[in-house]
Design a protein around this nucleic acid. Structure first.
Lengths: 121, 121
DNA sequence: ATGGAAATGAAAATCATTTTCATTTGTGAT
DNA sequence: ATCACAAATGAAAATGATTTTCATTTCCAT
């Protein structure tokens, strides 16, 4: 086990609450912080487990970490610029619950994401 | 430049219109087809360019290719045994479309998956 | 101080994907 | 049929993010 290094979270915040592990690492280096890439990965991982940040994927497959607000939400992601909008998923919650019940599933969770090109792109 | 090897498309279809490059490759191998991994990647790439398939990302970052225009479905996956049920997502389609329009997004796609424990587990 | 648990990071391992490059195949002109 | 050249192929190497290993260091509680 390992707890998150607080400097990692603070750097992610400073990055606009949105960055890849490599970016967080480079940022910390540039700012003269002494930290290893491994620790950055581990810290982000741990923040994800604690649901303090969540993780998406760029088009190129790189994982990007972002501070999440409190409520359960979904994302509308631009394939072009990566811009992300947090959206409500009331319809999804109901759908997931209905489907799960229909097939007798318990302890149900779900993922849902919408992607496309935003106005600018 | 290179055109898509038709056997790749045919295999992707046979896979349910939904698979990663590695999976397509393994499938073709298992079926005794002689093809290189490189060609599989190139063919899928080319199919994406021609907008015959589109590409999403799994949670683990692996790219998955799927025939577009395919009446696509979603999955209900058991966390215990991995059993998967294909389900309809009518409600999702509408939700995705509505949300995307609201924020002015174009060329919209989406992913959605439900997971939980099935009756047996 | 002392021992053990947790944290750290350098280096190696992993894995999907891309690039390189030499070879093979297909095609059209002669 | 033969020649010439473009396109396709695939083995192997390169790339790049992420994970694992493991030896070392830091923290605490006693």
């Amino acid at each position: 086990m390992s707890r998150s290094n607080p400097r990692v979270l603070s750097t992610l915040e400073r990055a606009g609450g949105f960055a890849s592990a490599q970016e967080v690492y480079r940022l910390m280096q540039r700012e003269g912080e002494s930290i290893g890439l491994t620790t950055v990965y581990r810290s982000l991982q741990s923040l994800v487990n604690d649901k303090i940040v969540d993780v998406l994927r760029r088009d190129d497959g790189e994982a990007i970490y972002r501070l999440c607000g409190d409520a359960h939400h979904h994302h509308l992601v631009c394939k072009g610029c990566g811009d992300t909008v947090e959206i409500e998923g009331g319809a999804i919650e109901k759908w997931a619950k209905t489907m799960a019940e229909e097939f007798g599933f318990r302890e149900v969770g779900h993922t849902a994401e919408i992607f496309g090109l935003c106005q600018k792109c």
